[in-house]
Amino acid sequence: MPYRYLENIAIADIAFEAYGSSVGEIFIAAGDALTNVMVENLDVIEKNTSKSILCDAESLEMLLHKMLDELVYYKDAEQLLLRVAHVDIVQENDTWRLNAQVYGERIDPVKHELNVDVKAVTFHRFALEQTAEGWKVTVVLDI
């Protein structure tokens, strides 16, 4: 798992760090860390539905935040548990554009061992950093 949950930040909520050797990997890892808060075993999620998440932002960091927001949105709007398969990111002048291919299926309480609901992706301590090994993001989710 290229992510770990943090014990001592915002104790009523859930915080995690995700890691990737590339920008693509960090987007996939952060998506999995978020979805894994809601469902115990990600491997149970089948590829019954696929979607493209398109968004743009003024920075790579905000682009990642917006993608995570979209995963939370689809959980309520279409009752979907989603994982990120692949991302295409381009920078045009001051704008970063994302096309994320995501897949998943409708929530089934019998099939999916559900945990807690994610209400939102907060900005508290939210930070995407380039490290010697690649990329790291810190995220606090509102539960």
Partner: peptide
């Protein structure tokens, strides 16, 4: 307790 933005 510790929240985000304002504390709870």
């Amino acid at each position: 307790h510790w929240g985000y933005g304002f504390p709870i």
